[in-house]
Amino acid sequence: MNIALVTDQAFEVDRAARTASPLSVRGLTVSYGQTPAIFSVDMTVRAGAMTAIVGPNGAGKSTLLKAALGVVTPLAGSVSVFGQPLAKMRDRIAYVPQRASVDWDFPTRVIDVVMMGLYRQLGLLGRIRAKHRAQAMNCLERVGMTDFATRQIGQLSGGQQQRVFLARALAQDADIYVLDEPFAGVDAATEKAIIAVLKELRDTGRTVLAVHHDLTTVPDYFDDVVLLNTQVVAAGPVVDTFTETNLQAAYGGRLATARVDPESAAG
């Protein structure tokens, strides 16, 4: 009887945390072939925080994001956004896919890509008015790309392309920003610009979740961390979770190549 009571209480606490969480997944499992890419992943993202998903290559980091956003269909598991099913809450989430996932020769201009972020606002046939253009230009300004508005996207450097992708997500004016490797292959100036925008989002109450590959910058950039290797190895605030022991567990023998500084990561 007592045990049942405690379990019920624990369940209630867990449910309350999930309802408050901007993005929570339970038992998420995705498989592209025989072996699962992610297996039974539980993750509860803290509201108003910046969370990094970290793990070795092939750990399923991008897959976890895609499954949480309904971009890939999971074999099992559930996703809730502020306690509601994902389908009802699409307007609250903005996604920044990997830059390499699209063809940059596509015949479109920077401003047109940013306007894609207004799709849910405009609908199928809604007219693009001056206020929508101003909105898009404002988003370009926040990432320092106003001068490039009418350029063809193929003319941009990798860092500039990444900023355009971020501007498109900003145009959605969402509560949750989900980014897949936002710093991969970008120049130092872009990395600084992007992290400034993300911190500004967090400081205005938005939630940021990003797949991140550079272990050395995790403590500087993020509040929380999820260590992933097909399953969740550890998750929580960076100060408690980003430890040598947990990293060893996540990366196994590959930690040496991931070059973490033992002094700073000793926890």
């Binding site: 895609k66 956003l69 971009v71 389908a87 996932s101 699209v102 063809d103 479109t108 894609m116 498109r168």
Partner: peptide, 14 residues
């Protein structure tokens, strides 16, 4: 045009 350019993002938009 959106899903032709960026299928993953289009799916994220529903």
């Amino acid at each position: 045009s959106l899903s032709t350019f960026d299928e993953g993002y289009a799916q994220g938009l529903g």
